[in-house]
Amino acid sequence: MSEPELAPTLAARTAALVRDRLGDAPIEVVEYRGEMTIILPVEHIVPVCQMLRDAPDLRYDFLADLTAVDWEDREPRYDVVYHLLSMQTRAVVRLKVRVGAEGEDHPTVPTVTGVWPAANWCEREVYDLFGIVFTDHPDMRRILMPDDWTSHPLRKDYPLTGITLPEPHWGGQVPLGSPVSPTLYRQTLRTPGGIPGEIDPQAESTRQSVEGQGDQEH
């Protein structure tokens, strides 16, 4: 294996290579605590990843991690972060793209599953928890939350607890096709039914049927 001193040299070479490739495009290279971050425009992410994977003296063959950070008050709002690693040269680099213009609910980023298949589940997780859509992804579905969840929990404006959500977000509680009463709008995470004192007959019957089923099972 090569000497550990090489790591900064390899990171510097990576930055030079990316600069070279992108020409006039605005990129930013940040170094913090010995780790190098390259921030680049979103439209270049796939070609740059492809290039870094195939560069003969770098060979970033392992996508260690892919995630996102929500900077709620900033524009663009989200960072999508790629942690690259080379198992052959031990080079390490972090790539970052910034997406999410004002009022854009589901920003898009091109997928890197074509470069590293490992990105598949990571991108699904980012979509699930942040609502960032990866274009041309082979299987863009939620992965951790239930399929009928209506929001993206790791966004900073998603509260931690004690919330009234705008619509029934847990699909199983409202029978399919039945009209939804306003009381049901206010259900909290784990308690079916509405707020005490505001009992709507229809919601009440739904609640009882749901609870009744539970009782029979026990």
Partner: peptide, 10 residues
């Protein structure tokens, strides 16, 4: 997967 998602990162 996701049956044991407990929102640890959040």
């Amino acid at each position: 997967i996701g049956f044991l998602h407990t929102g640890i990162e959040k």
